[in-house]
Design a protein around this nucleic acid. Structure first.
Lengths: 169, 169
DNA sequence: ACCACGTGCTTCGAGTTCGAAGCAAGCCTA
DNA sequence: TAGGCTTGCTTCGAACTCGAAGCACGTGGT
């Protein structure tokens, strides 16, 4: 079972490593700060905020399945968080009208209000933590590079891209 | 005690928002890919890998406190993960030589080995997902902007600018 | 109409996370 | 040397996460 091709050298220049680490640290600091803000301003966790925000931009009502799309969450986690939000009265869960199996999650007025309370602080945190450290040029540079990088990553094959699975015959 | 200054409008220009979202998405894609790789190549979680990597680059031994610096992790979480790593024999924990309160975490040969197994794949993932999408200029730009941003964030006051509690002397 | 399969969501158990409280060793001041 | 404060780490309880298994409704083939 010795693999004939050694595990690929891939040097990664120091500058590349530094860029990678800087990216990692910056985003984790930012994420942490945002999490903090959500909690103190609205008693929300990140997933809860995401659920509310997604509901809001979808007009206030979505089925669980549709809610799950675009959220980076497991199904069971979504169920759990939806239950939490329902307990707090920020959403309601009702059986789907057309399909008895499905559950429709609806944003309540209270939910909208909390979301409103939180949004301002959210922006403020990003502003203070990120934007005050950057000039307009920097923002432009980030948009340019990260924008391209995002597109690149989205289209990248997921690791062992099974390049030979369908070649037989 | 009503605060006389309203919560500052701070609009966040579209370009700023775009930069924020791009940063968020890029790092979350990268993080996800790396997490996957760590798990399949070495059975490590991200925090565990961070601990091992940090130990390694510090010569193989660090006190818990020093280990905590630079890790975006709670103290108790660090204790927990250190215990996990010790169970697997990848590190040892011994009372500090000079200070009885402290605990020195030491990378074992087995730990180094696992780290070695994982590092190649780790670099490979970063290389493939991130670096192939960027020119040298881009790397330089990222280093410049993100480097400054990191420094800025590190020194930013934690929201309700509480002026340092512990002042020597 | 039947019945096997698919779909939508929830429940369950195990593992991980955090903050607060706890404990023990060092440090300061008198 | 005593007293109280600080520091370094762990323990504890509660909350959150995931994947697997479970339940109930829907759908399609016969």
């Amino acid at each position: 079972m010795t693999d004939p091709t050694p595990p690929a050298p891939t040097p990664l220049a120091p500058a590349q490593l530094a860029a990678y680490f800087a990216l990692t640290e910056v985003s984790s600091l930012l994420q942490h700060a945002v999490e903090q803000q959500l909690k103190t301003d609205g008693g929300l966790t990140t997933p809860q905020f995401q659920i509310l925000a997604r509901l809001n931009s979808a007009g206030g009502r979505l089925r669980m399945t549709d809610l799950a799309d675009g959220l980076v969450y497991s199904r069971s986690g979504l169920t759990y968080q939806a239950a939490q939000l329902e307990k707090r009265g920020l959403v309601t869960r009702t059986p789907g009208a057309d399909d008895e199996r499905s559950v429709e999650v609806t944003l309540t007025p209270a939910g909208r209000e909390v979301l409103g309370d939180v949004f301002g602080g959210h922006i403020e945190v990003v502003q203070r933590l990120m934007m005050t450290g950057l000039a307009d040029d920097d923002i432009a540079a980030l948009n340019d590079v990260l924008g391209r990088l995002r597109d690149h990553m989205r289209s990248a094959p997921p690791r062992s891209a099974a390049p030979r699975a369908a070649r037989r015959r």
